[in-house]
Write a protein that binds this DNA or RNA. Structure first.
Length: 748
DNA sequence: TTTCTGTACTAATCA
DNA sequence: AGTACAGAAA
């Protein structure tokens, strides 16, 4: 095996010790993906394991695809037979095969976040609850959290601690909503993302024969990015591996950045307990980055209290110092960054594909895009508002979904009056209520419209139902592409878009054509076994980005969120928007754990870089259409100044190793930080800090601000949308706060 | 029931 | 800066 030669000692050990429970703790850039791919290749080639018997789980589609390609390079086309994919896609596949055992149709729909939120809104409306109190997004994340801990709605309602929590938060009906949500999903033959894991657990728990089947199918189970698993995922892998015990987990606690999705580092400890004979390998040598970058990364992550002992080191050269760019505005930041990229590329004979721009939130991409376009630099955004989240695409897909699954309520709601066909909200609500009262499905009511509705509406409903039936006939007889084309035309969607001659309208029309093209490719792909519309929908539900490799060899700068960048590496990394409240995000300042997660995210950003890391911040930035003053991120101060370099005017380069500059820069960063607010006395609010309704706020009231601490209201100015309060804070001094933004808790 | 218009709210990260 | 929603007008 010549590839074994290319590995260092711990890496090789982690590859060849294939039997029994194994834990690989792999620092950033330590060749984790190599080890994982070689381990799988080794299983196939040297141990003669059939790829059908190997299950490898990843977190993103991107990671799965890349790993499959790399394995294919070593073992050839056999790699296609591996069970490899995201947790969600692998278990969706298994659930489809076993759906009837838990009461679902095998063509069940997968609800995305939008579907879930809209269903919650309907439930709130029907049960007369206030959307302001039960914010749909918040309700959903509460339900999601419960599901990820495998707490069913019944458990939820019977658990006194949870009930007390909801009472305390003044949201006593949460359990009821959870129950209604689950029931409606079930009625719609739909599962949301969390259900794919939750229901897999149900399936395995209630059908031991099924579990047994898969336990014997998967001789080897491998889990990548184990630090990002939640309890639900952990339990699935544990059960699957409990017979043959060949489970291999790979992870790095320093890169755990999905706690918001229920990921729990605790799972690493659980693993050690559940498999106490596990062999443990530590990969600590970094092959990716320069010494300076590793030093920066280590100095940052050392500020975290919660972490496993690890010593990341590298034999690489010192390399460039980390550069910090200070900009006056977000626009200037874009300009400076794109110019720096331009210059660096030309001076060093690089390609644009050597560069990546990383940011905390997708909304930051816009300023960067503009600047790159002006500089004539090609770029590509990964993620963001993905193709499949666009309205016109979702509309057409909803038609397809409803054609395949008559019970899909969210798809029905979306398309029943689109384009307008005289079935408004009133009729829709009546339809749902009628179905409920009679205990029949919406589809049944639709097909018997004349018994429940009068004249015009009944006709509209009947012809809608007939149209869908026609689509179904088409879908049964033809392949996915032909069926979809028929639906796009027959529904009137295509015509409506065609008639919209605005630029956006043209774009939308093209997008729909692109979807149809993608479907044609799907149909013509020789690897596609099932070419039906239903099969296509199953594929598409779990796709987020349409990273088609059409322009694979093109030369462009990559733009993406730090989250998306995990597992990737680039020679030159620009992490932009290093500002307080943006990174770390203002929503993560509530607790120490949250802040540590942000810091790990920063760590991930730093460790993507191979040769050079550049950080940037702006002093002002447009947010919500308003110009906002910003201060540099606290993370900048956490970097050891010995590894930093000031950015003098673009065009002249500072000599490497000039730490004097760093000292000056650090001072300037500190100055920027201190002018904007009195940061010294960072106020730590209680864990249960919740902003009060400030509409009745009056002069003289005592308030608490999450950052400024306690204060007294001195006056109210500018009533209405821009209502402001002047508050005298004990520590931070007098501030004028825009009440629509400020989170204030009133202390009487 | 639909369309128009002003207003309120928003954008945290992924599957 | 956009957009989603609510209420008014047609």
């Amino acid at each position: 095996m010549d590839y074994l030669e290319s590995l260092n000692e711990p890496q090789r050990a982690a590859v060849v010790n294939t039997e029994g429970p194994t834990m690989i703790i792999a620092g950033a850039g330590s060749g984790k993906t190599r080890v994982l791919t070689y381990r799988i290749a080794y299983l196939i080639q040297s141990k003669g394991v059939d790829p059908f018997n190997i299950l490898a789980l990843t977190f993103t589609n991107k990671a799965a695809k890349e790993m499959r390609n790399r394995i294919e390079k070593v073992v050839g086309t056999e790699a296609r037979n591996l069970w490899m994919g995201t947790f969600h896609s692998v278990f969706a596949r298994i659930l489809r095969a076993e759906a009837s055992k838990i009461g679902f149709q095998s063509n069940f729909t997968i609800y995305d976040t939008d579907d879930s939120k809209s269903l919650i809104k309907h439930i709130l409306k029907e049960s007369g609850l206030d959307e302001k109190v039960y914010k749909p997004g918040m309700v959903l994340s509460r339900i999601s959290g419960a599901k990820n801990r495998l707490v069913s709605w019944r458990d939820y309602m019977e658990n006194p601690a949870i009930q007390a929590e909801d009472e305390a938060a003044a949201k006593p009906h949460m359990g009821k909503i959870y129950k209604a949500y689950v029931e409606r999903c079930f009625k719609s033959d739909a599962m949301d993302f969390d259900d794919l894991l939750f229901n897999t657990n149900v399936l395995f728990r209630e059908h031991p024969a099924v579990l047994n089947k898969y336990q014997h199918r998967f001789h080897y189970v491998l889990v990548d990015e184990f630090q990002d698993t939640n309890f639900s995922q952990y339990l699935i892998t544990k059960k699957l591996a409990s017979v043959r015990r060949n489970i291999c987990i790979v992870g790095d606690d320093a890169q755990s950045i999905y706690a918001f999705r229920g990921a729990d580092i605790q799972n690493i400890l659980n693993f050690e307990k559940d498999f106490d004979d596990a062999q443990i390998f530590k990969l600590e040598q970094n092959y990716r980055s320069t010494k300076n970058i590793i030093n920066v990364a280590n100095s940052v992550i050392s500020k975290n209290k919660a972490q496993l002992k690890k010593n990341i080191w590298t034999a690489n050269t010192d390399g460039h110092l980390v550069e910090v760019i200070k900009a006056a505005s977000d626009q200037e930041e874009g300009r400076l960054v794109s110019y720096a990229i331009f210059e660096q590329k030309n001076n060093n004979h690089l390609r644009y594909s050597d560069f990546v721009i990383l940011y905390r939130t997708n909304s930051q991409s816009r300023a960067m895009e503009e600047a790159l376009r002006k500089q004539n630099i090609k770029y590509k955004i990964i993620g963001g508002l993905s193709f499949y989240q666009r309205k016109e695409i979702k509309d057409l897909i909803a038609y397809m979904r409803y054609t395949i699954n008559y019970n899909d309520e969210q798809a029905f709601r979306r398309i029943v009056n689109l384009p307008k066909r005289g079935i408004g909200d009133t009729s829709q609500d009546k339809l749902v209520v009628t179905a409920y009262e009679r205990g029949i499905s919406i589809w049944d009511v639709l097909n018997d419209a004349h018994s429940f509705f009068s004249g015009r509406t009944a006709n509209a409903l009947t012809s809608f139902a007939d149209m869908i039936k026609g689509f179904r006939l088409e879908a049964d007889r033809k392949d996915a592409f032909e069926a979809a084309s028929h639906i796009a035309r027959g529904s009137g969607l295509l015509r409506e878009l065609y008639e919209d001659k605005t630029i956006e309208g043209l774009n939308r029309y093209e997008n729909v054509q692109e979807l149809l093209n993608a479907m044609q490719e799907f149909v013509h792909n020789p690897e596609t076994e099932d070419k039906s519309l239903g099969a296509f929908l199953q594929e598409v539900a779990l796709l987020t980005s349409n990273d088609d490799n059409k322009d694979e060899d093109q030369d462009y700068v990559t733009l993406m969120t730090i989250h998306m960048a995990k597992g990737l590496e680039f020679p030159y990394v620009y992490a932009v928007g290093m500002e307080e409240d943006l990174f770390p995000s203002q929503m993560m300042l509530g607790s120490r754990q949250d802040l540590e997660e942000e810091r790990r995210l920063f760590y991930v950003a730093i460790t993507r870089a191979m040769h050079k890391l550049t950080l940037s911040y702006a002093l002002t930035r447009y947010r919500f259409g308003r110009l906002k003053n910003c201060e540099p991120s606290r993370f900048l101060e956490e970097i050891d100044p010995a590894y930093m370099m000031i950015n003098k005017k673009v065009g002249s380069r500072s000599p490497v190793g000039d730490t004097e500059h760093a000292r000056i820069l650090l001072k300037s960063i500190k100055r920027d930080r201190n002018t904007t607010s009195a940061r010294k006395q960072t106020h730590q609010p209680d864990a249960d800090f919740a902003p009060s309704d400030t509409s009745q706020l009056q002069e003289g009231m005592k308030v608490e601000h999450p950052k400024f601490g306690f204060g007294t209201v001195k006056g109210i100015e500018t009533e209405g949308a821009n209502r402001k309060a002047k508050v005298d804070f004990e520590q931070a001094g007098e501030k004028t706060l825009l009440l629509s933004f400020a989170k204030l808790k009133i202390h009487e």
